[in-house]
């Protein structure tokens, strides 16, 4: 159970990193990636995954 970032769509704005409650989003080798070991899909913390809610590009933060 984790989310992932579709790098090809990502604008590298960093908003998801900023909002993730579990510090699962990292900037690595020039791209934002989600660490599946840390990602909880925001279960129990928010109604919807924060990365997907803030991301400006549709279908960029999606279930892995």
């Amino acid at each position: 159970m984790a989310y992932k970032i579709v790098t090809a769509h990502c604008t590298a704005c960093g908003a998801c990193e900023f909002e993730c409650p579990n510090a699962a989003v990292r900037f690595k080798a020039g791209a934002y990636v989600i660490d599946p070991r840390l990602c909880t899909e925001c279960a129990g913390q928010f109604d919807a995954p924060q990365c997907a809610s803030v991301c400006p590009v549709p279908k960029t933060c999606i279930p892995a």
Binding site: G14, A15, V54, P56, V57
Partner: peptide, 14 residues
């Protein structure tokens, strides 16, 4: 500061 908290119809950050 590239992150934004709203979407505007006149902006495309890509």
């Amino acid at each position: 500061a590239p992150a934004c908290n709203i979407q505007c119809n006149y902006c495309n950050r890509k």
